[in-house]
């Protein structure tokens, strides 16, 4: 049937405009929802517009009208076929209490690998310092760690005993610098998943080397208690956050590589996305907390804060963290559909 384009466009235009208005509502508010009647009408309008486009194309219709209609259908298509969210509107509390720990548990293998690489790096760092202490400057390029641990501890305790708060009037900015720096490093670790995991493993290993070197240095110099009191309050959160960043990077790498998977790369990445995003959010929350603790608690030593108190605080944090990841959101663990 040969089409009178102008008459056809005039007849269909009201329906197209109605569809356009409906699409605009969806685009303006990501959480916009329609009732059943509205959805049925929306679907009808979309199908009518699709039919109109097919007719215009078959009848060599006005190309600009076709282009406009094509763009409208593309926008409506996205809303019609949008992925359903099982949890509805995002709830921070629901995500923190369930979504984040569930995402962590779904990828335990990646976490185990992240942990193993870090431990391997720590072992190497410890051995390096034990065998060749002069390698400290190469392994730990941080000026405040290059001296003898006992000298540093003595200096710190002396300063703390003089009741002079060296961090007075810049704890807030120090805390902000710590958390933002650590989040940037973690984001880089995650992003390195796109190097097929090579970058992630390298960063995890290097972090492990530094940790192992510092630990070995202080333990060999008889400053184990100071080391634990200094690192534990913030370290029991910060180090796991780094491990989680490695985990997220390895999940991304695994989706990219697809070892032993029959799915396409696009499908694998699509399935991993929600969990990677969840892990990224959780890492940020952990590092904010760690940054606050490091600036306001970790930098204070005996006699201001007794070592046993700081170690006990760190131990409680670690126990709570383990319990959180082990038990939070357990009820929903069988749910494999992620929003």
């Amino acid at each position: 049937m040969i089409l009178d384009v102008e008459r056809f466009v005039r007849a269909e235009e009201p329906y197209w405009e109605e569809l356009n208005q409906a699409v605009v509502k969806f685009e303006r508010d990501p959480n916009f929802r329609m009732d059943l009647a509205g959805l049925e009408r929306f679907h009808y309008l979309y199908q009518r517009a699709a039919t109109s486009l097919a007719r215009l194309k078959d009848n060599s219709g006005d190309p600009e009208v076709q282009a406009w209609l094509e763009a409208l259908i593309a926008r409506a298509y996205g809303e019609i076929h949008r992925r359903p969210s099982r949890t509805g509107r995002f709830s921070f509390w629901r995500w923190l209490s369930a979504g984040f720990p569930q995402a962590f548990r779904r990828h335990m293998a990646a976490f185990a690998l992240s942990l193993a690489v870090t431990i391997a790096g720590s072992a190497l760092g410890s051995v390096a310092i034990a065998v060749s202490p002069e390698a400290k400057a190469t392994i730990m390029p941080f000026p405040h760690l290059l001296g003898k641990p006992r000298d540093r501890v003595a200096q710190e305790e002396k300063e703390q005993g003089s009741k002079k708060d060296l961090l007075a009037n810049h704890k807030g900015s120090f805390s902000a610098e710590l958390m933002t720096h650590n989040i940037r490093v973690s984001v880089m670790m995650l992003a390195m998943g796109m190097t097929w995991g090579v970058g992630v493993v390298s960063l995890l290993f290097y972090n492990g080397v530094i940790l192992g070197a510092v630990a070995c240095d202080y333990v060999r110099d008889g400053q184990t208690q100071f080391l634990m009191a200094w690192l534990m309050p913030h370290g029991v959160i910060e180090i796991p956050a780094t491990l989680l960043a490695g985990q997220a990077g390895l999940v991304l790498a695994s989706a990219l590589v697809g070892w032993r998977s029959r799915q396409t790369r696009r499908r694998r990445l699509a399935e991993a996305r929600a969990d990677i995003a969840s892990l990224a959010g959780g890492i940020a929350v952990m590092l904010v907390w760690a940054g606050i603790i490091e600036a306001f608690i970790s930098q204070y030593h005996q006699p201001v804060l007794p070592y046993w108190l700081k170690i006990a605080f760190g131990s409680v944090e670690l126990a709570m963290l383990i319990a959180y990841f082990a038990f939070a959101g357990r009820k929903g663990d069988g749910n494999t559909q992620r929003g």
Binding site: G78, M188, L190, T195, R273, S278
Partner: peptide, 23 residues
């Protein structure tokens, strides 16, 4: 920015594409 399959963008897509600016 659009979903490569023509679907609506999800927040995890927006977050991941922006985080990977780091690399």
């Amino acid at each position: 920015v659009a979903d490569a399959s023509g679907l609506r963008l999800t927040f995890s897509q927006v977050l991941i594409r922006n985080l990977l600016r780091a690399v």
